[in-house]
Design a binder for these strands. Structure first.
Length: 982
DNA sequence: TACAGATCTTA
DNA sequence: GTAAGATCTGTAC
C-alpha cells in the first residue's frame, strides 16, 4: 500500500442482513435451498465491483476486501456481559446462507476476512488505520453509524443502497458532530440494538448540543453540575460511569492482530469462469447473463460449480491461490431488460423491478430527436408493440390552461426515449420581427397539426397505456387540442396512494427519481436558467431539450415499472383506481371551465379597502408619534412594546415580540386604541392584497378564473388549490364575504353551492360507534346542543348560546385530536378548566376515548392509519422520542382517518357527478371543490331539477362500499353569486 | 434573487 | 388541537 492507492472495505455482515431483509425469500429452484440473501449479496457486490471500476464515479480501488463478523462473542463481552445480549438469533433460513456467502466472496476472487473474538468493525478500523498511515485512501462500504468514527482525511463511508458518500461534513450534518466526536456522542446516546446503555433521556440531538457546549464527554461529565435542566443534570451525574463504559464499547479497536496483511488485499487479475460457475450453481440466471456479457465469457460453456448444502456442511473447498477481481478486458454495454424469472407473487415482482431499476443506467446520448413524420410513426408503432407509452408535454407555461405546446417526449422502454420538437424557435426569435429563416435556424420540425393527427389515435387507443407524471397537466394540454387521453396511469398519483406522509418527501418526479432510481434528472433550471437568465423553453437548443425531455419520459416509465406493482403488493390498487385516477379528468375539466368573476366588484372593493386602510395608517402614525410600516411585525413590535412601553406578552421563537391578532386583541381589550387600529388595518390590507388586487390578475379574456387543484399535496387525501387558492376565499367577516359576491354566474345561469353538513362529526360518530351521537344525527338534532346537554345537564330548549359554543369547540377539538392546551386557547379559558371539560366529555362518550387510543395504537403498530376506503396516511414519527413532537403526530394520526374519509367521500361524489347529471340530461357544470362543498354553474331553468341530483349523488357517495350508521346531509342553494349561494 | 418566518385566510 | 396556500418582511446570498 502506498500513496495514491485506494482500499475498499465492504462491511459484509451488514450487507447480508440488508440483502436478507430487503428482498423476499428466494429458494433455489432445483432443490429448494434458501438463497435470497446470497442473491442480494451477489447483486450488490457485482454492482459495487462494476461501479468502482468506473473511474468517472469515484476512485478505482487498488485493494479490496469483504469483512465479516466471526461469532457473537467478542472482547466487548468481557467489558460488559450484556453487550448485544438482546440480539435475537438470525432467522432460520438465513443461517445456511452465511457459508454460501463466504463462498460467493471467494467466487468473486476477493479476500473474505474475519477473526475470532473481534467484530467486522474492528477489522475495518485496523485496516483503515494501516492504509491511511501508508498514505492511501479508504472507502468503507457501509452505512453503519458505528463506523462513522473512522471518517476523516482520506476515509469516507459509502452507502451503496442510497448511493451516498459520507465525509466528515456529511457526518456533521447527520449527527451534529464531526467524526472525531462520534464516539462521545454514541457513548451518551447508547444503542438499543447493541444494548449499549448510554445515558437515559439523551438522544442524538441533545448529545450533539451538549458536546457542542462542553467539548467532549469527559469535560461534560465533570461539569455536568452546570446543566440547567434538572432531569438531564441528574442523569448525567448518576449515569456517568455507564457513559464511560458505553464509550469503551463503541470505540473500535484500531490495532488488532491481523492474519492477512494489508498488502495482500491487492486486486489481482480476474477469474470469470469461477464466478460464473458459482452463479450458475446458485441458479441466478439474470446475474449470470449480466456477468458473462460484461466479462465477454460464454456462460453456456462453463459448467456450474457443485455446491450443495451437504458440501458446505463439510467445509468449503478453499483455493487461496486463485486470482481475484472481476476485471474485464472488453466492456460490452448490453442493457439487461425484462424480468429474468417470471415473478410468482406481487412482492416478488416489486423486488425484481426495484432491483432491475437499480441496475439500469441512464444514457442521455441514446435519446432521439424526431424531426419527420416517418420517424414519429415508427415510434408510435413501437408503442403499439410494447403497449406502453410514457408521455410528457413540454410547454411554454406552467399554467396548463394557457400553455402552448413546444414539444412532446415519449418513452417505450427503459432507455428507449425520444423528443418531438414542435414549436421551437432560434434564440432571439421570440420577437415579432423574427423572420422565417431565423425560425428555420433550429432545423426541421414536424408541423403540429400533422403530428397531432398521427398521435390522436394512439393517445386514445384502448390497447396502449399512456403513462405520465402529474398527468392532469398533460391531459389538460392535450384536451385543449381535442385529444382525451385514455387509458392512462399517473406515477405521481401511484406514489401518493402508496406513500402519502407528512414527513416523507413529496411526489414530484425529481424526488421520486432520486428515491427509486437513484438518478438525478436534468432540472428545468439547468436547461433554461432561472431568474433574470431564464430562457423560454422554445428558445433552448433542441439537442439539450431532447436530453431533458426524453429523460423525463424515460424516468416516468421506469418509475411506473417500480411503483405500479407495489399497488397490488400493498393492497392499494382500489385507492388508486377508484379515488385517484378517475378524478384526473374530472378536475381537468373543472380547471378548464374556470369560474366567472366580476372585475368591477373587485376593483370597487379594492378602492374601498385602500381608502379605509390609508385613513387608519395616518391615525396609526399619529398615535405612534412616527411613520412606520404597520405591516412589519418587527417595526410594530418595537413601537408597541419598546417606544410605547405596552405590556408585551409572547415572544416568537426567533426572539421577536409576537404581534399576532390574539396579542393585539388582548391589548385592545385593555382599552388601547392603537392595537385595535392595527388589527383593522391588517384585515383590510390582507383582503386587498390577497384577494381584490390579486384575483383580477388570474382572470382570462372571458373573465374566468382557472384555479389549479393539486391531488397529491396533502397527507389526508384532501385536494389543495393554488394560483389562485379558491379554497380560502373569506367568508367569516362581512367585509371578507363581500369578495365572494365577485364570483358570479354568467347571464342565464346561477351558481349552485352544495355542502355536506357536519360531515367529519358524522364520520366520527360512525367510526367510533357513539350511540348518542349516531342517534342525534339520525333524528336530525342539533349536534352541538345535544353535546352540551349531555355534558352540562342543560336542556336543549332555551340553551344559552355560550354553552352551545363551548360544546361546539369541544366537538371540533375532538376531530383535531384534542389537547387541553388547544381547547383552552380556543375558548380563552384556563388549561385546568379545559382539561376538566375534556374529562367530562370522555366520561359521557367513553367510546371516543377508546377510538382515539385504538387509532394511536394502530398507528404505532403499522406506521400508518387508514380511512374507511383504505387510503393510508403514513406517520413514521409516531414513536418520536420527543414527547411534544410525538403528541403532535398522534393528533395528526387521529385526525387523518376522519378528514381523509370525508375527502374520499367527496372525491367519490365528484367522480360520479358528471355521469349522474348527464343521465338526467342536465347541463350543470362542476366548477369548484372546497373540501366539503361543490360549486356548479347551472342554467336558470334547470336549477330545480339539478338540486336533487346533486344532493343524491353527494349523500349517497359512500355507498355501496361503506354503509354509514349516520345519514349524510347536503344543503344546496342557488344564487347569482357565491356569497348568496353559500 | 431566494428562502424562512410571521401572519392570516379557508374547511 | 387537524389540513392547506398566499403575502409580506427581512435577511442571506
Amino acid at each position: 500500500m502506498k500513496k495514491g492507492d485506494h482500499l475498499f472495505l465492504v462491511d459484509g455482515s451488514a450487507y447480508i442482513f440488508r440483502a436478507y431483509h430487503a428482498l423476499p425469500p428466494l429458494t433455489r429452484k432445483s432443490d429448494g435451498m434458501p438463497v435470497g440473501a446470497v442473491a442480494g449479496f451477489c447483486n450488490m457486490l457485482w454492482k459495487l465491483v462494476e461501479e468502482s471500476r468506473d473511474t468517472s464515479v469515484g476512485v478505482a480501488p487498488t485493494h479490496f476486501a469483504v469483512i465479516m463478523d466471526h461469532s457473537s462473542t467478542t472482547f466487548r463481552n468481557e467489558l460488559y456481559d450484556q453487550y448485544k445480549a438482546n440480539r435475537t438469533a438470525p432467522p432460520e433460513d438465513l443461517v445456511p446462507q452465511f457459508a454460501l456467502i463466504r463462498e460467493a466472496v471467494r467466487a468473486f476472487d476477493l479476500p473474505c476476512i474475519e477473526k475470532q473474538g473481534f467484530e467486522a468493525d474492528d477489522l475495518i478500523a485496523t485496516y483503515t488505520r494501516l492504509a491511511v498511515e501508508a498514505g492511501g485512501d479508504v472507502t468503507i462500504v457501509s452505512s453503519d453509524k458505528d463506523l462513522m468514527q473512522l471518517v476523516g482525511p482520506g476515509v469516507i463511508l459509502y452507502d451503496q443502497m442510497k448511493d451516498k458518500r459520507l465525509g466528515a461534513e456529511e457526518v456533521k450534518e447527520k449527527f451534529g458532530v464531526y467524526p472525531e466526536k462520534m464516539i462521545d456522542l454514541q457513548a451518551l446516546v447508547g444503542d438499543s440494538s447493541d444494548n449499549v446503555p448510554g445515558v437515559p433521556g439523551i438522544g442524538p440531538k441533545t448529545a450533539a448540543e451538549l458536546l457542542e457546549t462542553f467539548g467532549d464527554l469527559e469535560t461534560l461529565l465533570e461539569r455536568a453540575g452546570e446543566i440547567k435542566q434538572a432531569k438531564r443534570r441528574e442523569n448525567l451525574i448518576s449515569f456517568a460511569d455507564q457513559a464511560r463504559l458505553s464509550k469503551k464499547l463503541v470505540t473500535l479497536e484500531q490495532d488488532m492482530p491481523l492474519d492477512v496483511p494489508l498488502d495482500d488485499l491487492f486486486i489481482h487479475e480476474p477469474d470469470g469462469d469461477k464466478l460464473i460457475a458459482f452463479l450458475k450453481a446458485m441458479e441466478f440466471h439474470t446475474l449470470t447473463r449480466r456477468v458473462a456479457a460484461k466479462l465477454g465469457e460464454d456462460a453456456g460453456a462453463i459448467p456450474a460449480a457443485a455446491i450443495t448444502v451437504e458440501g458446505l456442511a463439510r467445509g468449503p473447498d478453499l483455493d487461496p491461490a486463485a486470482g481475484a477481481g472481476a476485471r474485464a478486458a472488453s466492456v460490452t454495454n448490453l442493457p439487461v431488460q425484462g424480468d429474468a424469472v417470471l415473478p410468482l407473487t406481487p412482492a416478488m415482482l416489486v423486488a425484481a423491478r426495484r432491483e432491475a431499476a437499480a441496475a439500469e443506467t441512464f444514457d442521455r446520448s441514446a435519446y432521439v430527436t424526431i424531426r419527420d413524420l416517418p420517424t414519429l410513426s415508427a415510434w408510435l408503432d413501437r408503442a403499439a408493440e410494447t403497449g406502453i407509452l410514457a408521455f410528457d408535454t413540454e410547454t411554454n407555461s406552467l399554467n396548463a390552461n394557457a400553455a402552448d405546446l413546444v414539444g412532446l417526449s415519449f418513452a417505450v422502454a427503459p432507455g428507449e426515449a425520444a423528443y418531438l420538437p414542435l414549436a421551437h424557435v432560434a434564440d432571439g426569435a421570440g420577437d415579432l420581427l423574427a423572420s422565417d429563416e431565423t425560425k428555420a435556424g433550429v432545423g426541421p420540425q414536424v408541423p403540429l397539426g400533422e403530428a397531432l393527427a398521427l398521435l390522436k389515435p394512439v393517445l386514445e387507443h384502448a390497447g396502449i397505456l399512456k403513462i405520465g407524471q402529474n398527468f392532469k397537466y398533460d391531459y389538460l394540454v392535450m384536451l385543449r387540442h381535442g385529444i382525451a387521453i385514455a387509458p392512462f396511469d399517473d406515477t405521481m398519483l401511484i406514489s401518493y396512494a402508496l406513500d402519502a406522509s407528512s414527513s416523507l418527501e413529496g411526489h414530484g418526479m425529481d424526488e421520486l427519481s432520486e428515491r427509486f432510481l437513484g438518478h438525478k434528472p436534468i432540472s428545468y433550471k439547468e436547461l433554461c436558467g432561472s431568474g433574470k437568465s431564464l430562457k423560454a423553453l422554445a428558445a433552448c437548443p433542441i439537442d439539450k431539450v431532447t436530453e431533458y425531455a426524453a429523460e423525463d419520459a424515460d424516468v416516468t416509465l421506469r418509475l411506473w415499472r417500480v411503483l405500479k406493482p407495489r399497488l397490488a403488493a400493498e393492497g392499494m390498487s382500489s385507492v388508486y383506481e377508484r379515488l385517484e385516477r378517475p378524478l384526473v379528468a374530472v378536475l381537468a375539466r373543472m380547471e378548464q371551465r374556470g369560474i366567472r368573476t366580476d372585475r368591477q366588484i373587485l376593483s370597487r372593493l379594492s378602492g374601498r379597502f385602500a381608502q379605509r386602510a390609508a385613513a387608519l395608517e395616518s391615525e396609526i402614525a399619529e398615535m405612534a408619534g412616527e411613520a412606520f410600516n404597520p405591516g412589519s411585525p418587527k417595526q410594530l413590535g418595537d413601537i408597541l412594546f419598546g417606544k410605547l412601553g405596552l405590556p408585551g406578552g409572547k415572544k416568537t421563537k426567533t426572539g421577536q415580540w409576537s404581534t399576532d391578532v390574539k396579542v393585539l386583541e388582548d391589548l385592545a381589550a385593555e382599552g388601547h386604541l392603537l392595537p385595535r387600529h392595527i388589527v383593522d388595518w391588517r384585515q383590510l390590507t390582507k383582503l386587498k392584497g390577497t384577494y381584490t388586487d390579486a384575483l383580477p390578475l388570474y382572470m382570462d379574456r372571458e373573465d374566468r378564473i382557472h384555479t389549479s387543484f393539486s391531488m397529491a399535496s396533502t397527507t389526508t387525501g384532501r385536494l389543495s388549490s393554488s394560483e389562485p387558492n379558491i379554497q380560502n376565499i373569506p367568508v367569516r367577516t362581512e367585509e371578507g364575504r363581500a369578495i365572494r359576491t365577485a364570483f358570479v354566474a354568467p347571464e342565464g345561469y346561477k351558481l349552485l353551492s352544495a355542502d355536506y353538513s357536519q360531515i367529519e362529526l358524522r364520520i366520527l360518530a360512525h367510526m367510533a360507534e357513539i350511540p348518542q351521537l349516531t342517534k342525534a344525527f339520525q333524528d336530525g338534532i342539533d349536534i352541538h346542543a345535544m353535546t352540551a346537554s349531555e355534558m352540562f345537564g342543560v336542556p336543549v330548549e332555551g340553551m344559552p348560546s355560550d354553552v352551545r359554543r363551548r360544546a361546539k369547540a369541544i366537538n371540533f377539538g375532538i376531530i383535531y385530536g384534542i389537547s387541553s392546551f388547544g381547547l383552552a386557547n380556543q375558548l380563552a379559558i384556563g388549561r385546568e378548566e379545559a382539561g376538566l371539560y375534556i374529562r367530562k366529555y370522555f366520561e359521557r362518550f367513553p367510546g371516543i376515548r377508546d377510538y382515539m387510543e385504538e387509532t394511536k395504537e394502530f398507528a404505532r403498530r403499522h406506521g400508518y392509519v387508514e380511512t374507511l376506503f383504505g387510503r393510508r396516511a403514513h406517520y413514521p414519527d409516531i414513536k418520536h422520542a420527543n414527547a411534544s413532537v410525538r403528541a403532535a403526530v398522534e393528533r395528526a394520526s387521529i385526525n387523518a382517518p376522519i378528514q381523509g374519509t370525508a375527502a374520499d367521500i367527496i372525491r367519490r361524489a365528484m367522480i360520479r357527478m358528471e355521469d349522474a347529471l348527464a343521465a338526467e340530461r342536465l347541463s350543470a357544470r362542476m366548477l369548484l371543490q372546497v373540501h366539503d362543498e361543490l360549486v356548479f354553474e347551472v342554467p336558470d331553468d334547470e336549477i330545480e331539477a339539478t338540486i336533487p341530483v346533486v344532493k343524491a349523488v353527494m349523500e349517497g357517495a359512500a355507498l355501496p362500499r361503506v354503509a354509514l350508521s349516520v345519514p349524510l346531509v347536503v344543503d344546496a342553494r342557488a344564487a347569482g353569486n357565491w356569497d348568496e349561494a353559500h
